[in-house]
Write a protein that binds this DNA or RNA. Structure first.
Lengths: 234, 234
DNA sequence: CGCGTAGTTGACGCGTGTCAATTGCTGTGG
DNA sequence: CCACAGCAATTGACACGCGTCAACTACGCG
């Protein structure tokens, strides 16, 4: 386990000093999962907060008729397990082989957050970031056309992959997962991707490695929420 | 301003003692808005946290082509303005006449949260609840059929209206708002509602007051995420 | 009373879900 | 090494739900 790399990742990503995170990290236990394994199921007692160290996982919700919806993808650096203090609504399953996940005992972490303002602030910031990300996803899901959704998805993944490469995005999840994430059918995802390939907006290095050839076109398709919508009255 | 009512609301809804909330409340300034007014716009400096005391508002995102998407409805008791510490992505507009909103200066509140663990924990809980709510909404948006979305929406509103009445839901927002919230066309929302009325699942007391006649049917339509999906392997 | 906006209803076409067939990839065992 | 199984991914054909456009009604306000 490369804790050093791990730590620097966190510090780079967050707004917390190394000292504070050190204290939190001392609470962590690490566990390794294989693809398909369950980190927790709905209704499991909420004993831990978690963080992905390496690999990838998905947060899923199952409806009674068997349909599945993926609520979030969890990539290295992402904390999860926050929202389930009162009722766990979702399961988390690992989707990448040899995924490493840090467990933080909930009550100890809460205490630490109470006694150490820096940690407390840090957790708040993490939660707020989570909210911001979910809200952005909300907008993507609300979009109508499949091409926009898929474009936005690729940009989201590119953004969250930053440490690796800005132009080559690796997709640790299957097309089915992407479909359930975007609320589309697998076939539609596939068609959208080949459409983008034909337009030479993206290219495939392999099935799960996409190169973004024309970022600008992608941005236009995804129609990144215009931060310049300042002049709106009403 | 009925602060007493307001406080008891908070205490009932949250997991925070009255003392802690009192300290937070002493920071609050209150402002009254008319329908259509803007609480903040994207890119405004993030000076405050906010809370709806009375009335209703919407969090919206505008795309460059003019389409609008409603990210969240804000009802009495809801805190907002959390997610924008680093970049404000959304505007918040009031949709109900004479809406009252509490402003909490951000830096003061942060300090208070740092120095008072009870407040800190409280804010965390609020943020976690927010996350849970957003995740549930994510599932609704991911659903395919319009009828399911609208049913789920009605149930969500019923749940958030609890103080008023479990069976009569008042909708402070227009059909257009509902449509933009669910990622549907106005006409589709309208059709779904009349469909539900014809099936005698709901009845209209007025255009914006819905009575839930057959909660069970509504639940089935919305297919509340089965908390009983315990036996899932994979 | 007349205007404007919100809401409903109808007709129609497009996008996407569904079903089915094909191809490609990966791992396993002969 | 190849054969085969099993799954992931793609592609095509078709149906249908929902977005679009348009007309009409209902309600509130000056």
């Amino acid at each position: 386990v490369d804790i050093a790399l791990d730590l620097s990742q966190q510090i780079a990503a967050g707004r917390c000093g190394p000292g504070a995170f050190g204290a939190l990290h001392r609470l962590a236990a690490f566990a390794r999962y294989e693809a398909g394994e369950c980190v927790y199921r709905s209704n499991d007692p909420p004993e831990y907060w978690y963080r992905v160290v390496h690999g990838a996982a998905r947060t899923i919700s199952l409806s009674t008729d068997g349909r599945r919806h993926i609520v979030d993808f969890l990539l290295p650096g992402d904390f999860f397990g926050f929202g389930l203090a009162h009722a766990r609504q979702f399961c988390v399953e690992v989707i990448h082989p040899a995924t490493l996940i840090a467990h933080y005992p909930r009550s100890d972490s809460e205490e630490l957050a109470d006694s150490n303002p820096e940690i407390g602030r840090c957790i708040r910031e993490l939660a707020f970031d989570s909210i911001a990300r979910l809200q952005r996803r909300m907008v993507i899901l609300g979009r109508f056309r499949a091409l926009e959704k898929v474009s936005a998805f690729l940009l989201e993944m590119a953004e969250r992959n930053r440490p690796v490469d800005d132009f080559v995005v690796s997709l640790p999840m299957s097309r089915y997962d992407i479909a359930d994430y975007l609320g589309l059918a697998v076939e539609t995802v596939s068609r959208a991707l080949t459409e983008l390939r034909d337009r030479e907006v993206i290219a495939f290095r392999s099935v799960r490695q996409v190169r973004l050839c024309n970022r600008r076109a992608l941005d236009e398709l995804a129609d990144r929420l215009s931060a310049n919508a300042t002049r709106w009255l009403l």
